[in-house]
């Protein structure tokens, strides 16, 4: 069922070319580019062009007023001496490293709980998914801030159990847990994808394992994990990349400043502040390119290491 473009091309070229076919091919090429035009235009004008420009700008000092001034690698070298930049890296990395696995663990655990033929499964699935739809909105950021504020429901709930943390919003060591809870709360989207993946695992595998006397833990590691690994990989990759780019909720929760004490100064927020608040567009462009490079490297590492733990159906084991 997998039709990759490569396969199609191979089968097409295996037939000897006929004059009529080659005319057809020319027509196809024209039609192909015509249909592709909207995307191609957008790709060149909105992605490739701007990427080249921002690469150029990243080597300049550019404040929007005066023409860009070429300064070579200065922006990049300054970055690593900029304490705020290093702080933003720290904030973002801890968000990605703690938030993403927690979110995916919750998603997987709950997907496994829901993966049964019980009544109400559809309802739970929808209910758990809902936060993913609204989680990135300004409204939710506002509500989150109110909920975790002084004498908000979270503070009161914890006080009931004798834990007096006060409001989380103003406490530099509690804002990160708060942001992580906000992303974990949106476990619904990866959960639904996990659930679809779990349904693909043939039931007889589990039955056979049961007969061999395998317990739930062994079944999980011997069947569920390897069979689900492509889906886990997909979710991990997408969630990690998304986590690097968090912006709106951090902006709203910290009043656009990344406080308290820089504890919510996410990478993209600092990039925005540097570019659009301090007007250091060259510096911000350097930050953007560094992000592209880092995300690229992480993607590469993911794909490289995936060979050892991701099993696609049809692979020989």
């Amino acid at each position: 069922m997998t039709q990759s473009p490569t396969l199609n091309r191979r089968s097409a070229s295996s037939t000897p070319p006929l004059p009529r076919k080659s005319r057809q091919r020319g027509a196809d090429a024209r039609a192909g580019y015509t249909f592709l035009l909207p995307w191609l235009l957008g790709f060149i004008a909105l992605t490739v062009g701007p990427m080249i420009s921002s690469l150029y700008l990243s080597f300049t000092n550019y404040n929007l007023f005066d023409p860009p001034k070429w300064i070579g690698l200065d922006n990049y070298t300054t970055l690593f001496q900029d304490e705020r930049f290093l702080q933003s890296v720290g904030v973002t990395v801890s968000y990605v490293v703690f938030g993403t696995p927690m979110k995916l663990a919750a998603a997987l655990a709950i997907a496994m709980l829901l993966n049964s033929k019980r009544k109400g499964q559809g309802f739970y699935r929808s209910a758990f998914y809902a936060p993913s739809l609204i989680g990135a909105s300004v409204s939710i950021a506002i509500v989150w801030k109110a909920m975790f504020g002084d004498s908000g429901p979270v503070d009161q709930g914890l006080s009931f159990f004798g834990i007096n943390l006060g409001g989380w919003v103003g406490n530099p060591s509690m804002t990160m847990p708060m942001m992580i809870l906000l992303t974990v709360w949106q476990f619904g989207a990866p959960m639904v994808i996990f659930l679809a993946g779990l349904k693909q695992i043939p039931a007889d595998l589990y039955e056979a394992a049961s007969m061999d006397g395998a317990g739930p833990v062994r079944k999980f590691f011997n069947i569920t994990w390897p069979m689900l690994s492509p889906v886990i990989f997909f979710n991990l990759l997408m969630e990690t990349i998304h986590a690097f780019q968090i912006f709106a909720s951090a902006y709203i929760i910290s009043n656009g400043e990344g406080g308290p004490a820089g504890s919510t100064l996410f990478y993209t927020l600092y990039l925005y502040l540097r570019g659009f608040s301090d007007f250091r567009m060259g510096y911000a462009s350097a930050m953007a390119w560094l992000l592209v490079i880092v995300v690229g490297i992480i993607t590469l590492i993911f794909f490289r290491t995936s060979k050892s733990w991701v099993h696609y159906s049809g692979d020989s084991k």
Binding site: L41, I44, P68
Partner: peptide, 17 residues
């Protein structure tokens, strides 16, 4: 028209025109 205008304008190409 300076260098940055030129670069960015070229990037947008026909669509912008």
């Amino acid at each position: 028209i300076n260098r940055r205008n030129f670069l960015t304008t070229v990037a947008l190409g026909t669509a912008s025109a």
